[in-house]
Design a protein around this nucleic acid. Structure first.
Lengths: 213, 213
DNA sequence: ACCGGGGTGTTACCTCGGGTAACATCGTCG
DNA sequence: CGACGATGTTACCCGAGGTAACACCCCGGT
């Protein structure tokens, strides 16, 4: 059997194990699931990171393509934004395990400090950045704003989606509304509440600079 | 020497090592820095997680207090939001290593799947939620919106702050502006760009449902 | 027929990090 | 003194990532 099909088989096995045991599955476990032993895995993927990366890339394509398509939809801007949000949430809802793999990869290697956004999400952020840059008139600060917003929006949806998936506080469409409302400046537009009392006790930022010893 | 002061010493040592070697520092290394051996660490903290947790809690207090204070500042809402954003960014700017520890903890234990928001950030999110709930009139959906927004805003600032800290694309105040603008609905308010062409190639979401084998 | 290469696979080992058991020591309090 | 509670140690176990060395099997070329 030539290399490629074999690789696919191994990836499928890894996929199964990770969906079953989570992203911390050991190489031994994966090898066992594939009915083989470790060295073969290492022959194909170099190291654990290579395996995870290969695995990730297979899934990233779908999510990324879906988001990209949603971003290009010929809708009013608000509708398009809602469409993108819904696409992402639908994706993570449909296959939570895969979603976990993509968004919360085990760091594994010390190459570069841990990023808030996993590679797959980094790509989504770039996609959003591109879309904003090419579709919205933001004046001179276009580049900066688009990049900052791309990251920010992605992080927002990541965190909010995580919470939603975990505690399911509402339907997906309502969640989409909530996030779109946030992006639409509803925080700015809403009225003040009749400020009853300031219930904040005296806050003294403790000087936690740790003693040298 | 009674327990507590000793604990502090050990935490200080751990602090030093982690600031030097990052959050992946080994227990051996930490013990060595403290001039002792592993079992003592385990006596005091149970396991590695206990150590990291204890370490984290010391630092969390400061960031949390700062954010809380900023949230309670008697300013116009936009100014208050900017103040909070600036407080957070200033915090991560001043002590990046500590910030990494708080925001990107090594998962370590398999208890519960990896969350997007580390405990420290979870607390910040709750703080924001409380502030929004008590200060902003959001109608019937108050609870849901505030919670979703708390998480969302925190995730947004996390991801954007991460990027900013890494690539330093602009000054802190400008970054604050960019994020505040996003929250203020500038994405909604901006005009469309003269849509030149739709440069999106045909997007066919590949059926990546992995074969069973 | 033979051999070589590229695939398959194996067993056995190394290293390192988290975690523990068993034991020795010191100071203080009754 | 003795007991207790802290200090500390060495030596070990285990699991996981990763590698070395070896064996098989098939197929194509000379």
């Amino acid at each position: 059997m030539s290399r490629e099909p074999r690789r696919e088989q191994l990836l499928n096995a890894a996929d199964r194990v990770i969906q079953r045991d989570g992203p911390r599955a050991s190489m031994n476990a994966i090898a066992a699931e594939a009915g083989i032993t470790k060295p073969i895995l290492y022959r194909h993927f170099g190291d654990r990171n290579g395996l995870i990366t290969a695995l990730t890339e297979r899934h990233t394509a779908a999510l990324l393509a879906a988001v990209r398509a949603a971003l290009a939809e010929p809708l009013e801007r608000r509708d398009r934004v809602e469409h993108v949000l819904d696409t992402y949430l639908a994706g993570i809802e449909a296959r939570p395990q895969v979603y976990r793999l993509l968004t919360h990869p085990e760091p594994g290697d010390p190459s570069g400090p841990g990023q808030a956004l996993a590679p797959a999400l980094r790509q989504i952020a770039e996609e959003i950045t591109r879309a904003v840059q090419s579709q919205v008139d933001l004046g001179a600060d276009r580049e900066l704003l688009a990049e900052a917003w791309g990251r920010g929006i992605t992080g927002m949806v990541l965190a909010a989606g995580d919470w939603w998936l975990e505690s399911r506080p509402c339907s997906r469409t309502r969640m989409v509304q909530a996030l779109a409302d946030l992006l639409w400046g509803r925080l700015a537009a809403a009225a003040d509440l009749p400020t009853a009392v300031l219930p904040t006790g005296p806050v003294e930022p403790p000087a936690v600079e740790p003693a040298v010893d």
